[in-house]
Write a protein that binds this DNA or RNA. Structure first.
Lengths: 347, 347
DNA sequence: CTGAAAGCGCTTACAG
DNA sequence: CTGAAAGCGCTTACAG
């Protein structure tokens, strides 16, 4: 009756418990089901796949009963080899530690699961080589499609998939001039919504904290920006360091639009350490709007990207399903505290 | 030369760009390579898999050259059907929105990638049915193993995998009396380290905020706890609400150990809204210690679980590789600001 | 509506 | 060291 977890804790900090090993069970095949249902494997396949040939109701019932009785489980590997479709979709993520990418990845997995697909993931860590390697492995596994959430700029990693005849779609960003489909949030619009809101507050100096690269979304933001520009890696650490440097030089702006939540969270942490109150000394609006931003201190005002809709569209596009009109897919301003508004929790 | 991303923005907020469709390329097979290398498919297989038969150096060179020339890519589906090993590992996560599980999942994916395995993910959303469904799909895909990061209490979802002869390992938690292997952080030890640290600060009232369930890690924590106990769902929202209720009733403790980072972040947000300064009015130590906690305001003091090591051990256990001694795998106290210590950034 | 058979691309005894 | 052949478990024309 003792809790098996604490039972052998023994102060080691990690608990490793031996599990029971079982001999590999012999799997039930369609031939077994056919034998029991007194029909052929072809008919079993027709029943279990609902086609492509019709089956008499009585036969169908016998097959279904036999399958249930024997605990039959379809072997997707064998089906994949014969039919050419594995039911697997490969997903490359640059950095699941970033809440924006993590949330996007999660939404994509959900959309794929709803479409009956299994998601194979790989993290590229922003490294084009690892990204290419992952795609290569996906193709070897004969995935039915590849979704590339790319932050890297160089090359066109989708090319190898297209060459193999495997559908691909970029999400968030795609390399310059790539002919592959893209589903991306409109970061340019997000930045202007954020900037406009800060300007309505009447702050004298509003700066944009963008990423280091001029490629992709970040580049589009920078190109569209007309005011003071700050640049730094899109990590909490880098943003925190930059904030400290700026403060030391007395160059902290009054209002700040950050390209990413990661940066906003880093700025918030540094500002708190420095004793610079947000929003009184420094007002912030971030452009990703991942769920995490509702629980920072103070809560971040964000331009929220419609990640769920993006994921749905990417999956439909990949699976070549009819796409609905993207009418409701705008980024929307979510006003909380960091911009200087009283915020939803001000009372 | 215009940026293709912004080119068709048109105020829609989401950009959907048609991609080029290519006819399915005919894949190069081992037979093609064999023909070009003037040898048999068996020998091609021996060369490309480094065994199980030896091959003459000259033949090997011809095969390698032919494979490169033709751009041969091994078909893992066909290999899986024949050899019985797909190279795929299934990973069930209860909630990737939780930074603790997200980080754990990421570390597992990294460890699996290093072992040459591809990770198939599914999110259960704490729902036992979805969890069972995911495992069923993994088995149909003939994964070589299943890793279950389970938060749900009922049943023993690993049973179906074991019955199929597929290796399974639980991470974080396993159902009561399950015979399956478990790799888990020692949450009981974490709680006592956290509590001890708060007591060293001399706070009069130190409470534990635990989850709602008595199963698994949370239950072990509760069982080991000797002081004031608070309970609530392990979400930011629930923890924030609880904090507000407590404050309204004047029952906020002086020191608080939270079972999870999610709860700590929720408490922090609520405390800030209420004007209760952390750590001056309320000191907090959290027991997960995911990377996010370094950037909260104030930075959270945590008992950090060794997620990377846990992931490595789980993968070794699953793959039946020799395990190193888990000597260095203790949870360790990371002192930052929320406990009342000056913190690493106090100057 | 049903069934015998080919074949997806590999791996692996087996025989040379 | 090399090669012809069987077979993994399905799906799918094809013939009845």
């Amino acid at each position: 009756l003792r809790n098996p977890v604490s039972a052998s804790s023994g102060g080691r900090g990690i608990l490793l418990h031996g599990g029971v090993k079982e001999g590999a069970a012999v799997a039930v095949t369609m031939a077994d089901v056919a034998r029991r249902a007194k029909t052929s494997v072809a008919v079993v396949s027709y029943v279990l796949n609902d086609g492509p040939r019709p089956v008499a109701a009585a036969t169908r019932a016998r097959v279904l009963a036999a399958a249930t009785d024997l605990g039959y489980r379809r072997d997707r590997v064998a089906a994949a080899l014969r039919s050419g479709s594995s039911g697997l979709i490969g997903l490359v993520l640059p950095d699941p530690g970033n809440p924006y990418f993590a949330t996007l990845g999660r939404r994509l997995e959900e959309a794929l699961a709803r479409a009956g697909r299994l998601t194979v993931v790989a993290n590229s860590g922003y490294d084009p080589h690892r990204q290419a390697d992952a795609i290569e492995k996906f193709l070897a596994a004969r995935v039915d499609g590849v979704i590339i959430v790319s932050a890297a700029g160089a090359g066109d990693p989708a090319g190898v998939a297209r060459a193999a005849g495997t559908p691909v779609v970029y999400v968030h960003h795609r390399p310059h001039r790539s002919p592959t489909a893209l589903v991306a949030a409109d970061h340019t619009a997000a930045v202007s919504i954020a900037a406009e809101h800060l300007r309505e507050h009447g702050y004298d100096r509003v700066a944009l904290l963008a990423g280091l690269t001029d490629a992709g979304p970040a580049g589009a933001m920078v190109a569209a920006w007309r005011g003071e520009l700050l640049r730094g890696e899109c990590t909490r650490e880098a943003a925190a360091r930059l904030t400290e440097d700026l403060a030391a030089q007395g160059r902290l702006p009054r209002g700040l639009v950050t390209a990413t939540d990661e940066q906003a969270i880093g700025v918030l942490a540094a500002a708190a350490r420095l004793g610079h109150t947000v929003p009184d000394r420094l007002a912030i609006v971030s452009c990703d709007g991942s769920p995490d931003t509702g629980f920072t201190v103070p809560a971040l005002t964000v331009v929220e990207q419609p990640l769920t809709e993006m994921a749905r569209h990417a999956v439909r596009r990949l699976l070549r399903e009819p796409d609905t009109a993207p009418g409701s897919l705008r980024a929307r301003l979510v006003v909380r505290r960091s911009c200087g508004c009283p915020g939803p929790d001000a009372n």
